[in-house]
Structures are given as structure tokens and as C-alpha cells.
Design a protein around this nucleic acid. Sequence first.
DNA 1: CTTCGGTTGATAT
DNA 2: TCAACCGAAG
Length: 420
Amino acid sequence: MGIQGLLPTLKSIMHPRHAQEYAGKRAAIDTYSWLHKAVLSCSRDLCHGRHNDKYIDYCMRRVQMLRYYGVQPVLVFDGGSLPMKSDQEIKRARSRKENLERALEYERLGNHSAAYECYQRAVDITPAIAFRLIQVLRQENVQYVVAPYEADAQLVFLALNRHVDFVITEDSDLIVYGCPQIFFKMDKHGQGVGFQISDITANKDIDLSDFTKQMILEMCIMSGCDYLPSLPGIGVKRSHGLIKRFRTYQKALKHLEAKGVLIDPQYEQGFHRAILTFRHHRVYDPVKKEMVHLTGVPSELDTNLDFLGPHLPQTTATAIARGEVDPTTFESFQDFSSSGRLVADSNATVQNGVSNKKVGFSAKKNLPAINSSRTHQHHRSGSRPCFQLSDLKAALVSFLISWGLVCILLACNPQVESLV
DNA sequence: CTTCGGTTGATAT
DNA sequence: TCAACCGAAG
Ligand SMILES: [Mn+2]
């Protein structure tokens, strides 16, 4: 869900950026934001429990693109789900089931395009699907880490602790978690939109110049987030106005009550829990090799933190982070790879600096549809296939040919003129 | 003006 | 899955 309406109000400080501009930097990737798009090309197979490499190729093309531009990617995966989001998860599971039934029905009727649209809304990205990608990441020496819970918090932990320089995502929640630098909506060419928290004082639409991190957090929660629905009629604009005027959510709520707004007695506690869930989410520390909080819990805080999900012992947390066990069941993944390099490469998680084999940013010619991800070519470190130029040439040639044809047709047959 | 709910697109051919 | 977009309603 993210924070509805947050990104449009921050438009003035969102700047077009290219992956090139992040050369020499390390990026943490919100991998599920890739996977949700990647599975669109093979939804039918995945819905029927069949494996299909297309979603892996999608992700690996992006990894190679980033490496080509000198960006070192660290892929971060979602782990277990939080009790606070279980309502939403149940709704989504039901919606997926409905879409699967509709897909099967359309297919019976022979309407394949309608069926495919339903399949796309029916795919569930399971830990097994993620694990297939992880196996390829190991083979290609790409760093990765599986978060104990939400990837969002893990991404921000890596950024705050300088394991990475910025985060690549589609999700406005990263701002709420306090991520200092974000690259939104990066496409396959490396084009996207950059965000820096340090620019926040210059924002136009809503004035955030005197807002602390805490005030931004409270503004976002008040406008409605994954962990707490908003009071009816309160969105980003009104929550901004309230926090700007009263500085804290407690005072803002008192004001609303004084004005006669009815507020569920549970709402304030829910608000406090939402704050703690953002600030102290459980994450994996790749240096300490154990589960920690996103930011330290103050010693004076006496709230029970069970709603963050259980704290896991070090060995479990590490096995999850390395993608050795399913983060939802704690059961071992089976090794599907033919080369059986799982154990040998299992240290290729983010905590270990690994020797980076250079994988050229090879364009389509190296990734035909029939090509399995496991056959990705390794290039000599100096070899950098020129993706942009060859693509540009091809586009230019086809452009000239088509317009050449149009001109010839126009010259020979004046009737065509009316069609153009 | 602001919020809310529903729809669509993303991939790739 | 997310966000963008659009139109309805307060
Ligand atoms: Mn999120």
C-alpha cells in the first residue's frame, strides 16, 4: 500500500536520474518490487506451479545493467510476515484465489488474453520463487540478504549503516522508514527518479522545512499506512497540516477530539505501535550476524514489542538471511540447481566482501528466450559490451528504413498521403 | 481542495 | 505488488 499521495506531494524534490550517476556506489535493491513485474511475463506457468526462467532473466538483466554502469547491487528479499499486516494479507490471498478461478474460467471459454490478465493478478510470489533467483545470485556472485520480516526495514538498515549508499525501490514506505537516498522507478535502461531526504526542506507542495524525521513519520502514519488505517477523511494534506500545527500526534488527536471528532479508543495505541514498528523493525545485522532493531530501542521504553514478530536466535536469523531456510516455515530449501554450488557459494551474502566476477551487461543477443539464466556468459573484466550503442544503431536503422518506405510510397502513390 | 475507490499498467510477444 | 490516473462525493 505505501503512503497514498506521498510521492506526488514530493514531486518538486524528485529528480530524473540515471544509474550512471550512481557509478561507484552500492545499491540495496527492493527485490520484490522487481519480482512483481518480472513474474508478469510468466504468470500462467507460476500459477500452475511450473518453473519458468523468465522472471529470473528479468532480474539478472537489471543486475547486469547496474554492474555495467558501475553500481554494485545487493538484493534484499522480504522474509516473514507481520501480524499487523495479516488482515491485508488475507484480503490479498482471497483476491489472488478469485483471479485464479476467473483465469481458469476464461481459459475454458478460450479467451486467452482475459485469462492472462487474471493470471497476472493471481500470482503469489512464494519463498520458493525467490529462492530460485537466490540460487542464480550465488552463481553470479551477486550479494543478497533475506530480511527477517519486511525488506523495507532491512534496506534502510543497510543504508543507515553505510553498507550501501542508496536504495532502489518503487515503494514510498522507504521514506517513512527514514531512508536517506532512494532511486525510485528505475526502468530497464537505468532511468528513474532520485530522492534525497536532505532536499526535503526545499519541497514546494507541502512545507516540510521545520519537520523532524519523527514529524514526517507521524504525518505519514496519520495519513494511513500498512500498520494503521487513517481516520476517515484524513490524507496527506490534512495530516501535514495537523502535524505542522501541533508538532506531535498526541496533541493533534487531542485537538480533533476537542473539535468533536469521534476517535476509536484503540486508535492512539495503534498509532504508538505503528511508530514503533517503523522505528524498531527487526532486521538482520550482517556484521553482528544477528537480529537487531532498525534503530536502537530506548532503555526507558516499557512497551511490549511482540507485535514486531518474534526475535529469532542467531543461527536461525543467519540461515534466513543467507537464503538457506524458508523465512516463513524455517524449513530448509531444496537445492534445485544442477551445478550444486549452494554450499560453496553460501557465503556470498552481503556481510562478506566477495570477489566480483564481472558479468557484462549483455543485451538481447546474449539472452535469447531459450537461454537459461544459468548459462549467462561471464566476460573478461575489461570487456564491456556496448549495449546502448548497438541498441541505438538498431533503432536508427529501423527508423530510417520505415520512413524511407513511407517516402517512396508517398512519391509513387499520392493516395497514401491521406493515410499519414 | 481533499479524500476515496475503482481501474489500469508494468512484461513480452 | 506498487503507483498513476480518473471520476465521484464531501
Ligand atoms: Mn512497503
